[in-house]
Amino acid sequence: MEKKHLLSLVIVGLFVTGCRPTGTDVESSDSVISSESQVESSSQSSSEVESSESSESSEPANETASIAAYFPFEENVAYSFVGMGNEFATYTKYPQYLENNRIQYVTNNGGTETVEVLEYADGTLTQVFQRPETYFRENMLNKTSDDAGTILLKEPLALGTAWDNPSGSASEITAMSLSIETMLGTFPAIEVTTTDDDTITKQYYVEGMGLVKELFTDNAGSYEVTSTLETRNEDAPEAKVILTFYPDANVMGLESSEVNVAFNTNDVTRHTLTDLFRQIPGVEYGRLIPDSATINSLYLNDDGRVYIDFNNALITDMNTGSSGESLILQGIVNTIGTYYGVEEVVLTVENEPYESGHFSFEEGEAMRVDMEDVIK
């Protein structure tokens, strides 16, 4: 498992050129980077195709072209790339959050999920944040990683534009209007070549589409790994599976159920979980909170705990005995803890320690994820 994890991170780093978060989700946002031309969605499958060298030009594809044109920030567009040469070169990508000049993507290569935040500012497109092994959804647009700073594109978009990266690698625009074949068609693309000590990476960007292909080789040319855009589906949600825990019909223990949840760009996680807690789909008695209860805030803190705060209705409108209340609280904690991958959850009401006629917690006291009462 450790080897798979390390290999996943290496491949993601090479093919995503995409700390622990705190804070809450954003309610809404406006995209300031958009595309003038849209590409129709497609799920056509075919064998991996190689790029053509016949259409290379030394002239810019568009003298006034900007990064906004060649890497549009778009909501609700699901991308999938087919890989060759390595099992982790195949991946999916989705824009989870978008606000002003920053966009947050999650990439899933079958071995791990990685979150990255890109920023378009001062004529550069830069990866400002990256967090591997992130299987939950949380707004990280305000985060900056100490080890980030890789530049994906730099203006002017013209042959010979070059830059250095914090890792020590050097990048340069090495071709304009290079014909690149993908499963969606053949397009003129900008080629960016990044050279490191032992490796060479080429990335291809198409106007109105963004990244369409990546090519990774070693300096000796002994092996080659590619990722090529296979599908680009607009108005598509991000699909997640959330394992939920709730009292059984007889309030004797906890049952569990996997629920398919769909998130669009900028959807607020706590709102989605509020609806889920009010009614588990397909389970008549699957309820964790009354309809009047809401989640005020939800986030993973630097101490490794998840903090979840409810309004007063969680207590005032619960209407159950002590055993039922105990199972409800444990169901909430098990669901949240499993979703975030943590062992402890601090549950509060209106930012005060949870206190009812049956249970009382101290300031900062956490409940642990516990599967003892889960019915097998």
Rank of each mutant, 00 (worst) to 15 (best):
L6Q: 10
V12C: 10
G13P: 00
F15K: 06
F15A: 06
G18A: 07
C19I: 10
R20F: 13
D25M: 07
S29E: 11
E40L: 14
S45N: 10
S52Y: 04
S52I: 07
S54I: 11
S55Q: 12
E56G: 00
E56V: 14
E59V: 11
A61T: 08
T64E: 14
Y70C: 12
F71T: 05
F73R: 06
F73H: 10
Y97P: 12
Y97L: 08
Y97H: 06
L98V: 12
N101D: 15
T107R: 03
E113F: 02
T114A: 13
E116Y: 06
Q130N: 07
T134F: 03
R137I: 15
N139D: 14
L141E: 05
I151G: 00
L152K: 08
L152T: 01
L157S: 11
A158E: 13
A158T: 12
T161R: 11
W163E: 04
G168P: 07
E172G: 01
A175L: 02
G185L: 05
A189V: 05
E191M: 11
T193E: 14
T193Q: 13
D197E: 15
D198H: 07
T199R: 03
I200E: 15
T201F: 09
Y205H: 09
V206M: 10
M209Q: 08
N219T: 13
G221T: 06
Y223I: 01
E224R: 06
V225I: 15
S227H: 12
T231G: 05
T231N: 12
E234I: 02
A239T: 14
P247K: 04
M252K: 05
N260C: 00
V261Q: 09
T265W: 14
L273N: 02
G282Y: 13
E284Q: 07
L288S: 03
I289S: 06
L298K: 07
R305T: 11
V306F: 04
N311K: 09
N311A: 07
G331Y: 11
N334F: 10
I336F: 08
V346L: 06
V349K: 10
Y354I: 08
S356A: 04
I375D: 01
K376T: 10
